[in-house]
């Protein structure tokens, strides 16, 4: 039994990668980058992926409103109906997709908390295609943890965090979790210490 203890303890190691201030600064920077690259905020639409992506999208819209005086419409996208692992995968809660504006011809930015295999974004692209034909679709994520399984990349990244597949990236946001922080959980080396 005493040999088991260190192993289990190692599994619960966690390290904070982003503080609330880090998250705030990253979102402010992304908001500026989005407006700069799209030459204004007029035809933008932020579409957050349920659940935490929606809150991040709203924060981005708040930032843009502060310095551009334009309120970018924020939509909520549920990709549950577009997953490629319906039978075998986890059983996520299905939410209604709610995009408050016509997406045709818009410059649409998908917002999510963590970019990992890319399969969620693949499903999101299918879901958006069913709703219309935006002029441009871009991707903003708070954390890119690598290990892509599809040819997908983010246009705006809050922080690149190198991880092993055994680790978990936990994003907590005030709106749902009571605090803002990103932690890395699980075994592996911690390079940023």
């Amino acid at each position: 039994m005493r040999y088991l203890l260190p192993v289990r303890a190692r599994g619960f190691l966690s390290k904070r990668m982003l503080s609330d201030d880090d998250i705030r600064r990253a979102l402010t920077r992304i908001a500026h980058e989005v407006v700069e690259r799209n030459q204004g905020a007029e035809s933008l639409v932020f579409v957050g992926i349920h659940t935490r992506g929606v809150f991040l999208a709203q924060r981005l819209a708040d930032r843009v409103e502060e310095f551009e005086q334009v309120r970018v419409p924020v939509g909520a996208l549920d990709i549950g109906l577009y997953r490629d692992d319906i039978a075998a995968g986890p059983r996520p809660h299905l939410h209604p997709t709610d995009i408050p504006t016509d997406v045709n011809g818009k410059r649409l930015v998908i917002v999510d908390d963590v970019l990992y295999t890319g399969r969620t974004i693949r499903a999101a692209l299918d879901a958006i295609t069913d709703l219309g034909r935006p002029q441009v679709i871009q991707l903003a994520v708070l954390v890119d943890r690598g290990h892509r399984e599809l040819p997908i990349r983010a246009d705006y990244v809050g922080k690149n965090i190198p991880t092993s597949r055994a680790q978990q990236v936990s994003v907590r946001l005030i709106e749902v979790d009571g605090a803002d922080e990103v932690t890395l959980v699980g075994e592996g080396r911690y390079d940023n210490s």
Partner: peptide, 18 residues
């Protein structure tokens, strides 16, 4: 289609299928 500025994210009382 009407344009609203914001949407409500998931409700807190949702049932987790898992």
């Amino acid at each position: 289609m009407t344009t609203r500025s914001d949407v409500r994210p998931a409700s807190a009382t949702e049932v987790l299928p898992s």
